[in-house]
Design a protein around this nucleic acid. Sequence first.
DNA 1: CGCAGTTAGTTCACGATGCAAGTAAATCGA
DNA 2: TCGATTTACTTGCATCGTGAACTAACTGCG
Lengths: 169, 169
Amino acid sequence: MTYACGMETPAEPRWLNAEERDAWLNLVGVLMRLSSALDAQLRCDAGLSHFEYMVLAGLSEAPERTLRMSELAGFTESGLPRLSQVVGRLEKRGWVHRSPSPSDGRITLATLTEDGWEKIVESAPGHVEAVRAYVFDPLTKAQSRQLGEIGHRILRAIDHQERCPGSTA
Amino acid sequence: MTYACGMETPAEPRWLNAEERDAWLNLVGVLMRLSSALDAQLRCDAGLSHFEYMVLAGLSEAPERTLRMSELAGFTESGLPRLSQVVGRLEKRGWVHRSPSPSDGRITLATLTEDGWEKIVESAPGHVEAVRAYVFDPLTKAQSRQLGEIGHRILRAIDHQERCPGSTA
DNA sequence: CGCAGTTAGTTCACGATGCAAGTAAATCGA
DNA sequence: TCGATTTACTTGCATCGTGAACTAACTGCG
């Protein structure tokens, strides 16, 4: 029940078959465990949360190592309030600097400092190693490719459905 | 940088190639967005968090609709403190009942009540529909099968590596 | 029995998160 | 050019999750 079989409700929807159910349970497991495993590695190895790493990584790849807050929020798939607090912490640690945009005073530009650059350069190898260990090493080349395609399709589906979906009725 | 290319550190590790990097960014996106999309659907449709749903679902599939707290914690991939609080909330709402095991007083047995059963029976169809919409509908049959296999391999890798992985050096 | 040591859960304190309200700057209409 | 609206962020509050200490119950050895 709760994913497959069961015959209780009216207008019974399309339940998951055994193969889908198995895939789903594995995916939920990955959702729950991979985030925390990566968080643990970064926290222990570099003293950064995965989210903080992504903020630094996003800035490190941007032109001038600078992005507006809302662009950075888009890159990290997060809302502005969360980003604001995290960037505040990173700023206190000296890895990011915030300044109002000269062209538009509403806009806040976040810039990676030299210390921040060094921080991510020293943190990246260990993190990439963990990503390999957890994700790519156990997969075949074809599976890695499929994983990219699968992730892409799921993200598109979420984008297109972004709303409170109609319930059963 | 931060995932591919870059030549800064000594003993440079195996960076991600373009295909892997793309797959990785998509997977991170799924990690960030799918959880919150499912949470939003359940919260809006059924007034349950995804974690609460999993607790009820776990109990609904167990013999006697009953599990010990630590077994339930294993099923939901979570620690006991978190589970204890969530089950406490579900108990206040009348969907779960806790009682000490007759055979061993240290053990707490969590049982799904009749109300809890009805709750999950009414919540499941909408949730399964969302899982389909976000995950399986956009995938081919072969991709769904691959997803199961990929998830399985990643979970095994995490299980085997559960520790603070050695850093770059 | 009786006490040390272990196991199972709970509780507490702290930090992180997300929504709603607040502030400051820019744009647009009169 | 002045005020109303919109945009871009920040702050505050209420909630949730995590790790460390705490309690209760069982086990085993004398």
